[in-house]
């Protein structure tokens, strides 16, 4: 089985987000960037499938500028065999991302595509679902458990009500929840080894797809700040305040 993992380079989840002073977006210059967290779960799952002998080749794909090589190298340090960078200067919307991935998938012919359930920058939560529909492959979203046996795929999905269990088949597109696994840290020797693993670069303009933005960002602002309230001295005061001041109980 061949597994393809889609990876996005995003502002590190620990970084305090700053809105640009001209309200055109969020500051990403001179900010620590990392692998999108649930994409790390997707990488980890692919590496586990290889360790279990279920996958024989695992590859990662990212779309972005040259700097996105970082996240692909990270994926290879975690155990991915080789990577593809689709070079694009522009930020793509999920539909364009899915169309781009489809072209790579048509060429690479993986049996399984894994990615994070959403990117923590744009928070769209769309790409996996769109890709599944474009490929006409089964879709499994927000998975927290995966078992593959005799070409059968058993997944558990995190839904609002609890957990949903589905059975499907390969090829499939699965999007990963943070609860799927605990991504490993890349060891220093593996980081060194990853530098020698193959990383192919493809220019997005050679793929012949429409990647133009359909959505215009008018402005990006800071969310309204919530002011800190008061400290109460004891439970009695708290309950009195809730009853007679806030009137919520």
């Amino acid at each position: 089985m061949k597994v393809l993992v889609a990876v996005k380079r995003v502002v590190d989840y620990k970084v305090q987000i700053r809105v640009k002073s001209d309200n055109s977006g969020v500051e990403t210059q001179n900010v620590k960037m990392s692998v999108n967290p649930p994409d790390e779960n997707a990488i980890e799952e692919a590496v586990k499938l290889k360790e279990q002998g279920l996958a024989n080749e695992i590859i990662s794909v990212s779309i972005g500028d040259d700097k996105s090589q970082d996240v692909l190298r990270t994926s290879m340090a975690m155990g991915i065999d080789r990577s593809i960078l689709v070079k694009s200067q522009n930020t793509l919307e999920p539909l364009a991302v899915a169309k781009t991935l489809k072209i790579i998938i048509d060429k690479e012919k993986p049996d399984l595509v894994l990615m994070g359930k959403q990117a923590i920058d744009d928070d769209s939560n769309q790409t996996g679902q769109i890709l599944s529909a474009l490929l006409n492959w089964p879709q499994g979203c927000f998975i927290s458990n995966l078992k593959i046996e005799n070409n059968k795929v058993f997944i558990s999905r995190e839904i609002d009500e609890g957990i949903e269990n589905l059975e499907t088949s390969l090829p499939a597109v699965l999007t990963c929840d943070l609860r799927l696994n605990t991504p490993r840290f890349a060891s220093l020797p593996n980081i060194m080894k990853a530098k020698k693993k193959p990383l192919e670069t493809i220019d997005i303009d050679t793929l012949g797809i429409d990647t133009s933005s359909k959505i215009k960002t008018l402005k990006v602002i800071e969310p309204p700040k919530r002011k800190a309230g008061i400290m109460v001295n004891d439970v009695k005061e708290l309950v009195q305040k809730l009853k007679y001041e806030a009137k919520v109980i």
């Binding site: 999920p94 539909l95 769209s124 939560n125 769309q126 679902q129 890709l131 529909a133 979203c141 609002d160």
Partner: peptide, 23 residues
């Protein structure tokens, strides 16, 4: 934009070839 809607509507985006706006 519950797990129900998130799971479903992007497929319509693919089928209609329009970009969805989330959440």
């Amino acid at each position: 934009s519950s797990t129900f809607g998130k799971n479903l509507l992007p497929r319509v985006s693919a089928q209609l070839d329009v970009t969805q706006i989330s959440d």
